[in-house]
Amino acid sequence: MNFRQTLAKRYKQISNKGKMASKAERQFIANGIAANIRCDGRDLLDRRPLELETGNITNANGSSRVQLMGTDVLVGVKVEVATPTDDRPDEGMLEFSISSSSANATVAALDARTADKMTRSLEFLAEQLQKTSHALDLKKLCILPGKAVWCVRVDVLVLQSLGGNVVECVFLAIKAALHDTTIPNCTLIKDSNGEAVDFDISSNAYDVSPIEGVAEFPVILCFGIIGARVFADPLFEEEECADAFVLVGVSASGAVCLTQQVCAGRGVDPTTIIEAVDTARQAVKGVLEDTGCTHTSICNADGQ
């Protein structure tokens, strides 16, 4: 299987919202990008202020909400005990499910199929992010090998997408929600031979620990490309007019684990892609600092 091709095919639907923009609008936006003045007065690499809250769903183990001027993403994380698969008896599970609210689909003029494809592509990207970065050590989520592991389910709901840049919001929200997630501590019950046979989950709401390795969990930054110009944090209108997008999966330390180029018709010069990746590596620290997602969790400091 050609991984890149599959990814490209899947991703194509993410930003492709029908490509409805008139020639005049395209020209206006392209000229603006060339002159380094975007529709809302930002420079090419400026980002819009985003609002992030965590812990807003009380009955979830972790949650977050990201709002970016018309884009609104809600994430809930649920941690459950599950039976591990036979081929990976000592690994916990991390599952992503992303859906778009039907209200959003109507407003953003997405038909059900496009919305479905878009969310499916995002799910795929989320899985690839974990697979390629190995940020979360799934072995740490194991309770009793072969018997019980923690299953971390990340549910993402795209409430609104008119502000553009859904991809970045989704992955920032996922990261924030994982930071917010706590897992109840377990005590193993041992038999007379000293072998663990059973476990006991603490019912104390404060006897919990965070997920290990979340601080290194990457986010995906999305860059639009018009001509040879790279711009960050695209607006909805700019998404419609962009020649291509470069998605860069990058962790707080600047380690790139995934890049994806999506073209809408025209090809992109390789140097432009490299520029986008470099920009992502420089920008990621600022983005995460703004959202407060760089703190190493308390658990890691304790060393367990």
Partner: peptide, 25 residues
Amino acid sequence: DQHIITEETRRRMARVRNAISALAH
């Protein structure tokens, strides 16, 4: 369609846009 928009005008337009979105907000 080839109307040339100066940098100054572009900034003014961005300001109007942001003013309207602030009102809508």
